[in-house]
Amino acid sequence: MADAAVATSGAAIGPPVIEGTGAAGFHRAIFAGLVVLLLVAPFLLYPVFLMKVLCFALFAAAFNLLLGYGGLLSFGHAAYFGMASYISAYSAKVLGFPPELAILAGTAMGAALGLLFGALAIRRQGIYFAMITLALSQMVYFFSLQAKFTGGEDGIQAVPRGTLFGILNLAIDINLYYVVAAIFLIGLYAMYRIIHSPFGQVMKAIRDNEPRAISLGYRVNQYKLALFVMSTTLAGLAGATKAIVFQLASLTDVHWSMSGEPVLMTLVGGLGTVFGPLIGAAVIVSMQNYLATLGAWVLVVQGIIFVTCVLVFREGLLGFVAKTIRRPL
């Protein structure tokens, strides 16, 4: 039924191509600036707030990796974030894992679940892909609601933060902050390298023109699945870290509304930009903090931001900056 319109569909989702020279050096400078910023930030802002921003920034960046560079809209990233959060919390609290292993276990869960769901979801494209990922994540939600180990409505509370590698006491906020900042930077740098690798180039080719990529001999589905698993692994890393930071894993983390968060952050920050999701996460988390007392108005404001971004500000904050300075960000 949709064949005719697909052929005439206009601009693909994703950023306009910005050709810049010396982009690598420019990006190295931004990463260096980011390291400095993350080092001094806890002296200016409340570390727990910063950790929340960084966890969500990693989550949003993982989502952006998939949509911005692969053109795949997953509306069910809460499944990987939330399940990783449960596994991390469970292994730290009940199994007594040290934090590094708990986070690793959660991340592995994100990868495994991503492999399973990704293999199913890539069987359909476009809008169906979004609906399938959403439905699968709702299945995970109902599973979490009924399963014993998740603690149902209560979730897993009072997760011990533990000591990293048996040396660093993570119960102290500032110690944990630097660990989270390191995890975030490693995750973001990994994504940066993925995007700028030959693999990333092929992904962008598939995003922009899938039939042509197929005709060039690329096994498109394998590429999509690989990118999907990378994205869910990093979403898992974000969720697992979040469970240690807030010492809590709950149904909120697997609910469909959690899947909307990285979408919103990515849209605000700039779809298909490396650093956009960080900006988007900072904006949205700050907004949620300010509006926390207003109850359901947060929902309304988020909806309005969604609508505004989609209608008039599709490039997002960093996309706009990138267009202005004519360099990819």
Binding site: L73, F75, A130, G260, Q302, F306
Partner: peptide, 21 residues
């Protein structure tokens, strides 16, 4: 209509949030 169809999904998702809120 002239953009990717996924934007329609995102727009109506935002509208759903506003209406429910």
């Amino acid at each position: 209509y002239k953009f990717d169809h996924l934007y329609g999904l995102l727009l109506t998702f935002g509208l759903a949030l506003i209406i429910q809120g």
